[in-house]
Design a protein around this nucleic acid. Structure first.
Lengths: 152, 152
DNA sequence: GGCCAGTAGTTTAAGATTAAACAGAACCAA
DNA sequence: TTGGTTCTGTTTAATCTTAAACTACTGGCC
């Protein structure tokens, strides 16, 4: 956007950085998603499986927080994973407001099969940068994305 | 994702950078979009208006390329902008396959009114980083997103 | 006990997004 | 001229995404 905008140097710099950041994220996302396509999983679904695999069962509120998504969104993504029997929901008895989501046997197996390829795709994407550059990029991104919850 | 994944150092580094990049892009996008909400425009719609404003009338294929989106997506976004009379379509007579999209008077006015605030929001977001850091981030992102068309 | 505020999930409406199938147009070659 | 190829844009089906309205549940307070 706004490649031709003439403003102050500060504005031009901020705009340029913003555009480059968005394009990089879009490009990488598109390519990673294409690697994933044959599995029939979306990136959102993989995100949920990943969280459950590495962190154990979680309630939907926690999933929403981890993935920076709204509650309504998580409801739908879990719905779709549940249709494929990759995760299951369990209403908690202690506090019936909570729903605990966990991987099924099939979910575990599928994720274990897919994850190494997913990591390989990410390593390949990042291969454009040296180790030092990757670390610098990670640091700058962390500084930019500083928490500030999505729904706050 | 995969904060707890134990792989090689190369894998851990690539994963970490990937996560940080995605979270930064998501956070910034969410905050920028919130600034935009009162106008009723989505970020995609603003992207189209911006391209038309700064580059002049374009056909949908060119818009898709500029914005890294699919043709089907552009069709819909233009539909929605057309409903609000912010852009207009004109079938080209020279080659009837092309549709030239341009801003209406209203579109120009709305964009002119909104753009400065949008730039201000981006400058504020990027204010987390020094000028040198912004330039470093832009360079690293450019390196990562190197062209490779979306639909190719 | 009964009301009320806050919390967890769901639903709904609108828009974004892609891939894939499709229609119309241009173009090239035999 | 006809046939095949390529290109632009549209449509469709599926999913994602958000905000906002809604339901169900908990816990505190009178």
């Amino acid at each position: 956007m706004g490649t031709r905008y003439q403003g102050t140097a500060e504005e031009a710099r901020a705009l340029n950085t913003y555009i480059k950041l968005m394009r990089a994220a879009d490009s990488v996302t598109a390519r990673i998603h294409r690697h994933l396509a044959p599995t029939g999983l979306t990136l959102s679904q993989l995100g949920v499986l990943d969280a459950l695999f590495h962190l154990g069962p979680l309630c939907q509120r926690d999933l929403a927080q981890k993935l920076l998504k709204t509650g309504g969104n998580i409801t739908l993504v879990i719905d779709n994973l549940e249709k494929r029997a990759l995760v299951k929901r369990e209403r908690q008895t202690a506090d019936r407001r909570f729903v605990l989501v966990s991987l099924t046997e099939q979910g575990q197996q599928l994720f274990s099969a897919i994850f190494p390829r997913h990591v390989a795709a990410i390593v390949q994407e990042m291969g454009q940068l040296t180790a030092a550059e990757q670390e610098a990029l990670a640091r700058l991104c962390r500084q930019l994305g500083r928490a500030e919850c999505l729904e706050g």
